[in-house]
Design a protein around this nucleic acid. Structure first.
Length: 271
DNA sequence: AAGTGGACCTGCTAGC
DNA sequence: TGCTAGCAGGTCCACT
């Protein structure tokens, strides 16, 4: 579910409230993607530091190490005062003096992993392959063009891979390619320099707009305050197969790439 | 080495 | 109404 905008909106909705809070308890539910990697009792009495984001991962700094969190496909975090009794999909509670941070994740593709630091140990291994942050000044047309030229996959897959630029998942990769007028099936090494520049700008503007709108709530995404996103109401192509393109009136198509659905307008997007 | 497909897990929806 | 197949926002890993 959560792509960069949802993760960042989540972060912003609880980071300042949890920072400085003292951990008083930890509750684990069913196993997530990876084991926590430490004795939960070791977390108790530690103070929570800054909450930062790298790609779709959140890093909760603690006094000794920190927690790397990922929301997977169906995860969401809530942070609030009296936490209700855990439901069947609540698999991690970090209880603090200021409230409980709770991970709800029906599919359990998400994770909470302890690491000695963000750039060593388990966190470093998970973050090692990530590409540039989309809002990093270094992510521009030239960088994207050079990176795309080295690969032979479809441009949509190159975006989703996260090794060139992080943050665009299935929704925003489709939307950015629409904005840039590029067919998602175009081979990445056939994207011209000007088109790469348009695509880089489209990735940034798409993610920025989604951030502004609180992300996308397709079914159940909420930020840590329980607020839904509104970007899905503005999607140009994602989830709109068979419907008229909002720009040219043509019919939005759905194809499958790498096992994932891609949506595009054949009239507006060219190879 | 890069590209591809399977794996993980649960819930919801459309169609019979 | 009830069952089933197909689909879903991610990404790691094994295999070619």
């Amino acid at each position: 579910m959560p792509e960069l905008p949802e993760v960042e909106v989540t972060r912003l909705s609880f980071a300042d409230r949890i920072e400085g809070a003292r951990i008083t308890g930890v509750r684990l539910g069913k196993p997530l993607r990876w084991p926590l990697g430490c004795d939960p009792a070791e977390l108790v009495a530690q103070k929570v530091g800054a909450v930062t984001r790298r790609g779709k991962y959140l890093w909760l700094a603690l006094e000794r190490g920190g927690l790397l969190m990922h929301l997977g496909m169906s995860g969401s975090l809530a942070f609030g005062k009296p936490a209700a009794p855990p439901g069947p999909h609540d698999h991690f509670d970090l209880v603090t003096g200021r409230g409980t941070l709770r991970l709800t994740d029906p599919r359990r593709f998400g994770a909470v992993v302890w690491s000695a630091s963000a750039d060593s140990g388990r966190a470093a291994k998970l973050l090692a392959r990530l590409g540039l942050e989309p809002f990093d000044a270094a992510f521009d047309g030239a960088h994207l063009h050079a990176a795309l030229r080295k690969r032979k996959v479809a441009v949509k897959q190159a975006l989703l891979g996260g090794e060139i630029v992080v943050g665009a998942g299935n929704i925003y990769a489709c939307e950015a390619l629409f904005d840039a007028g590029i067919d998602p099936r175009t081979r990445s090494d056939r994207i011209s320099r000007p088109r790469a520049a348009r695509l880089a700008a489209a990735v940034r503007s798409t993610l920025a707009r989604a951030l502004d709108l609180g992300g996308s709530t397709l079914r159940d995404f909420r930020d840590a305050r329980g607020m839904e996103g509104a970007f899905q109401l503005q999607a140009r192509v994602y989830g709109r197969a068979g419907q008229p393109c909002r720009r040219c009136g043509g019919t939005v198509r759905r194809v499958v790439q790498g096992g994932r659905a891609s949506f595009f307008c054949p009239g507006c997007q060219r190879r």
